[in-house]
Amino acid sequence: MAGDREAFGQLVARHQAGIRALARRLARSSSDGDDIAQNAFLTAWRRRSTWRGGSFRGWVCMIAYREFLATRKGVRTENSDEDHAGAAGESGERLDLTRAMAALDESERSAVALCIGAGLSHTEAALAMDAPLGSVKSWVLRGRAKLQKALAAYQPA
């Protein structure tokens, strides 16, 4: 039990940035995203016996996405874009990325955040989103195209 706790603490420290980044992109809010990430880790801790190996990060990403859906059902934050985009110390590139992500449809944003941002496979993202694999691939393609267009200034020549 104590060993479990120590190992889990190390995993949280190692993956907190990735999970928080995903949750912030989904929620379009730093504070809401951090709450979602925290709940995702706590859910992972409670259900650790159900983890069947594989990528811990991928598993917690899926939990975080479900936490996001559960949170979204309860409260919809109108000012969330400004909360996330206006965080102090963010570079112009990151602000533009945040704004470009916010302009995507929700399905596109979620698929892009899971696949390109968090590094999940299309299959894992389809499982997390409870959506057909073809739809997820389509959302990623469309979202990526929109982001590339919006962020053309940052693309390498």
Binding site: A7, S55, C115
Partner: peptide, 18 residues
């Protein structure tokens, strides 16, 4: 409880975006 190597996406994301 151990961490496993990160799985690769089926399609690599756009390098600049990633």
């Amino acid at each position: 409880m151990s961490d496993q190597p990160r799985e690769q996406p089926e399609e690599p994301g756009d390098d600049a975006l990633a």
